[in-house]
Design a protein around this nucleic acid. Structure first.
Lengths: 192, 192
DNA sequence: AGAAAAAGAGGTCATTTGACGCCATTTTCA
DNA sequence: TGAAAATGGCGTCAAATGACCTCTTTTTCT
């Protein structure tokens, strides 16, 4: 069905049969650059896997500022967990940073799969655990790091995203103004 | 065994029998104010339930600054998930803010319980889910909120902790200097 | 109860940061 | 391909913030 996705699942020790079953319930869709997959206020009804391109989860505050919670490049998952889990209106938006291809599952289908396929449950637990650790690191960084340190951490963690993202979005992910991000980058160039 | 704890579990739909079994493997301990339960570098080997008092999870940076990840007052759980899950050295400290009483379980025992008692697994999943949502809110707040908004959110979320914590620690939880926190509080008084 | 430590409050000052505006360049998309 | 939009970079200025200090009051702990 979606052989690239099935291959991806094999890296996580899911047997062919399981990957095939999961893939069989997936639907696919493409997104244009800047197209929204979900807007604040809607209820998140799907689990989404990004095949190619890149999506982002972001919040828009009352005064119009964007804050980016997460970038999801190819071979990553994206959804608003809170809205998905509880089926309540989401506070965030999900949109495409680049033209993207996604697979998605209805919540009901995915929950069926979690029961049917025990390896999928294990894999999902891994993702949750990673998510928690990553969030904690980000909170610590937000609490204590200087803009320069934050940028440096970003470069270390996501070297491949650097040249795919406008600086404006990196600034918005780091919680720093574009001006400050430019200053940091300029200071680093000086130092070389 | 620990009847207060067992009563607590009943609020989460755990049957008597299950609560009793869980409680039977718990050990208890008291902590003095400022006593450490775990220091950075150690491996987190226990799951800990706070009976009374209050603990905090915090990080100390190279330059000596403290950043508080979490307060755990009575009837809450506390552990370094990352270190506990992977059994790697922790980057954080856990210490008592007030004289405290805790129950704790060896990791091996707790994992046995998770398998034995399916309701415990459900309860644990609820906790994880809450943790994720809470972390996400905190990241959004760190990215976009002013010190004043951060303080206001803290007051809304933890009204009962306000008068149990020194302002220094609230500042350190919010990622703001004590000076700024004082300015915010002073400005609010003016406004009344 | 009394000494010692911590906390709260505030003053000053240097630094960092963001807001705003401008322009040249690049990218996008019809 | 060509017009329109987005981006990156920079200058200026005002405001916010933190570092450092002092002093008084409260709390802790023996």
């Amino acid at each position: 069905m979606h052989s690239e996705f099935e291959n991806y699942l094999k890296n996580y020790d899911l047997p062919d049969e399981a990957a095939c079953r999961i893939s069989s319930l997936a639907m696919s869709r493409t997104l244009r650059r800047n197209e929204f997959l979900m807007s604040a206020g809607e209820i998140c009804k799907h689990k989404v896997f990004v095949m190619s391109g890149m999506l982002r989860i972001f919040n828009i505050t009352a005064d119009g500022n964007e804050h980016i919670l997460q970038f999801s490049p190819g071979h990553g998952w994206v959804l608003d967990v809170e809205s998905y889990d509880r089926q309540v209106p989401s506070k965030v938006n999900i949109g495409a940073v680049e033209p993207s291809e996604i697979l998605y599952w209805h919540k009901a289908d995915f929950e069926k799969l979690l029961i049917e396929v025990p390896q999928l449950r294990l894999y999902a637990d891994q993702l949750i655990s990673r998510n928690i650790h990553h969030s904690r690191d980000r909170i610590l960084s937000a609490l204590g790091a200087t803009p320069e340190e934050k940028y440096e951490e970003f470069v270390q963690k996501f070297p491949k995203l650097l040249n795919r993202l406008p600086l404006r979005m990196i600034a918005s992910y780091l919680g720093v103004s574009l001006k400050t991000l430019n200053r940091v980058r300029h200071a680093q160039l000086q130092r070389i």
